[in-house]
Amino acid sequence: MFGRDAIVTEIPRLRRYAQALVGDAARADDLVQDTLERALNKWLLWRRGSDLRAWLFTIMHNVFVNQIRTPPLVEFRADEAMPEAQTRATQADGLALRDLDRALAELSADQREVLLLIGLEEMSYAEASQVLGVPLGTVMSRLSRARVRLGALLDGQTGGASLKVVK
């Protein structure tokens, strides 16, 4: 019972990240499902005692990168209003959330991953570097660019008001 549960416990965080990464709820769960299946296939490669969460996020990164590189190119989000998971639609500031979805979609996949691993998943810069398989300096420069770009996008969409509703 332990093995399944240890992974089950990580699923909510994998779903949160996937949702923010690909925007669409069904596609996000596809990504999580592919990640879980690959994790089972590679289970013997997991080093016991190392961080299970980091390992699962690394697998998800690889699956994600393969998906966006493999034709037919997976198209991120339709231009039309994006279907929102029911759990999010009931949050009253749905408009601001949709702004955020759109703004994230405008970032490059590289920037979006770094921004979300650090800003949402609260990984350290070193952990993000490990999960993404890029040097620390690359993580920092992507993070910097992502934050500047996200700030500009949110300002542009909402006249600068959206971040103020957060608190």
Binding site: P12, R13, R15, R16, Q19, A20, A85, T87, R88, Q91, D93, A96, L97, L100, D101, L115, L116, G119, L120, S162, L163, V166, K167
Partner: peptide, 11 residues
């Protein structure tokens, strides 16, 4: 904070 607010409900 905005990222958390937007995506934490999924947890």
């Amino acid at each position: 904070a905005f990222l958390h607010r937007a995506y934490d409900p999924i947890l």
